[in-house]
Each structure stands twice: as C-alpha cells, then as structure tokens.
C-alpha cells in the first residue's frame, strides 16, 4: 500500500514539474509543426506528392522532435540527488527508470497525439492512414521512451560527446520507422506488423529499465 502511495506521489511530482515546464513541451510540438512547414516549402505544394510521402515525413519528424528534450530525461533528478532520495525511500533504480519511462510516455509523448490529426490534415492523408498513424504512434512512442531512457542514462556517464545519445536513438529507431510506415503499404499486413511493434515495445519495456538502472548506478559511483 505504501509502495503504491509512493508511485502515486512520484507521478504527482512529475505532473507538477511538467506543468511548470509546459513551454518546453509545447516547444517540441511547435518544432514539429514548423519542420512540417519547412518540408512543404522545400518540396512544393503538389497535393499528390505530399499525400504519398506525408506519413514518412510525419514519422521522421516525430522522431526528431522527441529526441530534442532527451537530455533532460534524468539529468535534473540526477544532479540534485532526487534519484538517491527516491532510492533511499525503498525503490530500486530499475523501478525508478521504469516509472520515468512511463511518465515520459504520458507527459512528453502523449501530447503529440493531439497534433497528429492536424499534421495529417496538412498532408491530406486518407482517414485510414490517420487511424493507423495514431495507433502505431501510441506503441511506437513507448518504444521511443524506452530508447530515450537508455540513451539519457548513458549520457549521465558521458561528459564530452552529447550527440551520441541522439545518434543511438535514431539508429535503433530504424526498424520502428520501417514497421510503422510499412503498416500502410499492404492492407492485410496490418495485424502482423502491429503485433510485431507490440512485441518490440514489450521487449524494450523489459530491457530498458534494467539497463538504465545499471547506468544510473554506475553514474552515481563515478560522480
């Protein structure tokens, strides 16, 4: 019971932090829309062309926008010692990482859901593709949060090369992009690819708290 209360407390604190930091969050979404505009200006306004490449552009820009604020994933809590305090209240670092992933998923990735239909309107996507996009994004953003957790916890140990985290996230999200955009290519492929995505998400949900916890422990030891 006490444990559940602590988890609840954690999410309350996170939601307050994100609420105070809403500008940062909205900046990500503005970045997303602005880069769509840049793409359209660069490619011209040919409706057919935009419709055929729209989904790919939306997905890659979603990736870029969600790696923008990855540095902040653990850094604040690590620098001011909240991670240690939270750990000393009886929760393992692995579980803290898991909670962080969930809160990143809820507070950073989910607001993008509102922007997805608007972005689809810009590209005149057919309704079935919008539906697929939203479904795949819910799963895909969970994978992105897991990847982000790994790369951000790695960056705690790394004081020289800051872009390597984003590079790794982009590299490992290649299969994610292939599957989530490929879902529209063949109609009867939907369920197999969707299940594949779900499987990847579950694997990452298992791996990433474990590896982030290990990295956090190492970072605390090397501080």
């Amino acid at each position: 019971m006490l444990f559940v209360k602590k988890i609840f407390l954690f999410f309350k604190r996170e939601s307050k932090l994100f609420h105070n930091n809403i500008v940062d969050l909205l900046s990500n979404i503005i970045f997303f829309f602005l880069s769509i505009f840049v793409f359209v200006f660069a490619l011209g306004t040919d409706e057919q062309l935009l419709r055929s490449i729209g989904l790919g552009i939306i997905w890659s820009l979603l990736l870029f926008s969600s790696t923008l604020s990855l540095r902040k994933f653990y850094e604040d809590d690590f620098n001011n010692g909240v991670l240690i305090i939270f750990h000393m209240s009886g929760i393992s670092y692995e579980f803290i990482a898991f909670l962080k992933i969930i809160s990143h998923f809820l507070f950073v990735q989910m607001p993008f859901l509102i922007s997805l239909p608007i972005a689809s309107i810009f590209f005149n996507l057919p309704i079935i593709e919008v539906y697929n996009l939203i479904l795949t994004f819910i799963i895909g953003s969970l994978i992105l949060s897991c990847l982000g957790s790994i790369s951000a916890s790695m960056n705690l140990l790394n004081k020289t090369n800051f872009s390597i985290g984003s590079i790794l996230v982009l590299l490992f999200s290649i299969p994610l992009i292939i599957f989530s955009v490929g879902i529209n290519e063949y109609e009867n492929n939907f369920y197999s690819l969707f299940n594949l995505l779900l499987g990847i998400a579950l694997i990452f949900l298992g791996i990433s708290p474990w590896s982030s916890g290990a990295f956090i422990k190492l970072a605390l030891k090397n501080k």
């Binding site: 604190r13 307050k16 932090l17 105070n20 930091n21 604040d76 620098n79 001011n80 010692g81 909240v82 240690i84 305090i85």
Partner: peptide, 8 residues
C-alpha cells in the same frame, strides 16, 4: 547538493 526541485 540540494535535493529540492527548483521548479516546484
């Protein structure tokens, strides 16, 4: 270091 969150 101070464990209080500066933004709260």
């Amino acid at each position: 270091q101070n464990t209080s969150s500066r933004k709260l």
